[in-house]
Each structure stands twice: as C-alpha cells, then as structure tokens.
Design a protein around this nucleic acid. Structure first.
Lengths: 230, 230
DNA sequence: GCAAAAGTGTTAGAACTACACCCATGC
DNA sequence: GCATGGGTGTAGTTCTAACACTTTTGC
C-alpha cells in the first residue's frame, strides 16, 4: 500500500432531488436550511459522504433522514464540481433523483426539517448550485420516463388510467389525447387491470391498474420498447 | 465562513473512457499503468482532481496529458463510489466519455504512457472497477448516439456515407440497410454533400459529407428529432 | 472486362395522429 | 334528470422495414 502523492483535499456530498406527484402537479421536497451557511434559505436535502458508506448508501441515508423511507427508486444524476460552488469548502456534490409516493413520507421528519413540497413551476431560489441541479433533474426525469417505466414510482401501486395520464402530462407539461394514451399503454401489455374502481373522485369511478414488472420484463425480452412520447 | 463538521476524507479522481473509430471498429485507448498499485496492468487514463480546477477541467487535463488534444467532446458519465474500489485510499472517481478522431492524437505521448487502442470486443482485464466503467460508457454511448448527433465526433470533418454507416454499425454491433440508412440521414437535412470524392479506398469513390451544426440547430427548432435506431 | 464498393426506389405493413360521442354514477 | 369525469373506434397520414440491381472506376 502506497499513498498517492498530490491528494486533492475535496469534500464529497450528496444532494437529493425528491420528486412527488399530488394528483395534478409534479413537486419537489425542499428543506429550509437549519444551519450555516445560508441558514433559513431553501435547499435540497443533502449530506456528506461518510468513509464507511458508498455513494448510493449515502444518498439513501440522506433520503431516509428526511422522509423515513427506504427502498426508494433512486438514480445518480450528475456530479457538480465547480470550484466555488460551496463557499465554505471545496466540495463536489453528487445529485440523486428520488421518486417517491407523495403520501408515504413521514410527516414528523418533514416538519423537523421545515421541509415543503413545491410545484416544479414554482421552485424558489435555492442555495449554491441547487437550482442548476433541479433543472438537470427535471430534464433527466423527462427523458427517462419517456422510455423506462419509472413513472409508476410516483404513483400508488394501484392507479387509474386518468391518474397515469395526468402524471405524464405534469412531467411533460403538455396535454395528451385520452384515447391514444390508454391505447398506447394497454398495447404494451405491462399493466394489469383490476376489478376495483376508484371511488369518491368521480361519479362513474375509474378502474384501477397495476404495473406488472414480470410482464414488462417478458415484453422487453420479446423486443418491446417501452416508449411514451411527450 | 464556518467549516463543516464531520468532513469526509475522500479523494476525488477522474477517469477517461476514450473512444476512437478506425474505419471498422470502435476502440478504446487504454494505458499500461506505470506506477503502483497495479503497475503494469491495463487501465483507463485518470488523475486526481486538483483544488484549483473544476471537474470538467480535470477531465480535460487528463485527456490532454495522454492525447495532446484540447476542445474534445467530453461528457460526464457517472461517479463510481464503492468503498473499496481503490485499495490504497478511499477514492470516488468521476468517469468521463471522450470521443476523439483516432488519427489526431499525439503518438509520442501515447507511447510515453504505453497506451494502446483496443477494440471494444477485446477489452482486457482492467484495474479496480474500470471494466465496469467501460461497460457503462459503451451503454451510454449507444444510447446517446441514437438521438444526438455526437457520432460525428469520432469521424474526420469530411466523411463518406459508408464510413458513417460503418460507425453506427460498429457502435450498435449490428448491420444496417444502406438504402434506408442514407435515406434517413439525408432526410434529416443536417449533412452537406461536398463535390469531392474519397479516393484510394474503393474504385468508384464515395462522396464526402459534412455535418452542419447550424442546419442541425435549425432543424431542431423546427421540431425535428434526430434519431438513428440500431 | 471484371472485381469491388457506391448509389439509388418501391411497396407493404405498422405506428401515429386527430377527432366526438355515449356511459355510469352521485347528487 | 343532470352534471361530471370515464371510456372507447376509425380513418388518414407518416414512418419503417424489406428487398436487388445499376453505376463507376482501377486494375
């Protein structure tokens, strides 16, 4: 074991861009920073990498601290490494996208961090380069949902076709044709229709569906490509 | 200015996955490691992040050290942060994809680092997690060339239609129909046909084309999507 | 004149887009 | 019985995929 010469004295952090969907809008969970620097400003939830954990663990830990959730869909987005991005000390930060069901998180923890959900159209000024991270995160999500079945992570396991459509409309900031949308989704054969109907939202009630990972894998192996264009 | 408590003592490195195309095969430039640990083994070209440079600069510097090239198409790929990925010291490494014209690099520098081009089908065992990086890099490249006009970075400014097709075939490891390929490329209206023909390779000679960034931007603004499926 | 690569068109099927009305239910 | 959102079919158009022969030229 030799030590490397010219070590770079740089800190490594992770920041989580936490997405949720509340039946109509795509939202991000932001915290009001309780410590210096920039105390009291809005920020992404973040933390420093510890020696005994790998990067993904660090991101999961940070997400868990704020939401109480584990086993969440997370994905490394990008590293931000500009020299002065953090004024206190040279820090590179790895941004992670997290997709959660907006109704599942632990409200007490969220209160503890003075966190709030913001619609993506109304993101406030954030500290450091966090607005840049958010922009990258939204672009990445838009791109990714168009050809991977990850949108379902933002919905309850049981969801209706109109809910799913509104989700895609919110992500793409567009509107889609109901007939073409359901035709497309059903044609891919990755959804299971349940007998049960959603009650209380509309008079008629909409049938619930579930995403079926097994069916998806089979379809993929048969050459299907999952595509939902904006 | 306060200092953060519980700093993570972690080094930050960059590693470059350098792609080239030699008329038939997609290749990677690998170095024979001249220092400990793992001296004499094949490896990606890498280096540590310095305090006074941002991540992209570091990647450019590392690429320049090996190839003598500047202003090269580079793209951050992913961070690798497993605890024991580097046995000497805890290091997270940011992998960068670089696309270069295989005929342009500085041969002396390449010799100095005992570097060699390897076809992507014959990548040797590499140190640390570099094989993982290479796999991620190839997957990323395959995905990216299918909807962004970055393949041209691997070719000379003037290239023939058959060269371009062979490039895509090499990246996708597939074969394509000549007629459909040229029809598709020309229909997007982003290439300029030159009067000049390639000499010496085939009897007939093939016309040269150039990629036109301005035309591409215009087409994009008019709603074109650049797509070349495998 | 022949070998080797370049260049070019057509057709059938698949996927996409646009579009409007009836249905089920709670009040 | 009416207001609200849920659910469904068709036709025109565009895109894709499959397929083979002629052209040019150096030797």
């Amino acid at each position: 074991m030799t030590e490397y010469p010219n070590k770079a004295q740089v800190l490594v952090a992770v920041d989580c861009i936490i997405f949720g969907f509340d039946e109509n809008e795509l939202k991000l969970l932001l915290i009001k920073r309780g410590f210096q620097p920039e105390q009291g400003k809005w920020s992404l939830m973040g933390g420093f990498l510890r020696k005994e954990e790998n990067l993904n663990n660090a991101a999961e830990r940070v997400l868990h601290q704020l939401t109480g959730l584990k086993e969440v869909y997370m994905e490394q987005l990008q590293v931000f490494g500009a020299i002065k991005r953090d004024p206190v000390e040279r820090t590179v930060s790895v941004a992670y996208n997290a997709l959660i069901n907006i109704h599942n998180h632990d409200q007490e923890l969220v209160n503890k961090f003075s966190a709030e959900w913001f619609p993506i159209s109304k993101i406030p000024d954030l500290i450091f380069d966090h607005n840049q991270m958010v922009t990258a995160a939204i672009n990445h999500l838009r791109h990714k949902v168009s050809h991977q079945p990850i949108g379902f992570e933002l919905l309850p396991t049981k969801f209706t076709m109109p809910q799913l459509q509104r989700l895609y409309e919110a992500i793409y900031e567009t509107s889609m044709d109901t007939r073409n949308f359901s035709k497309k989704l059903l044609s891919m054969g990755v959804l299971v229709k349940l007998q049960e109907k959603q009650k209380g939202f509309s008079r008629k009630g909409a049938f619930y569906y579930q995403f079926d990972q097994g069916k998806y894998q089979k379809s993929i192996n048969n050459g299907l490509s999952f595509v939902i264009k904006p």
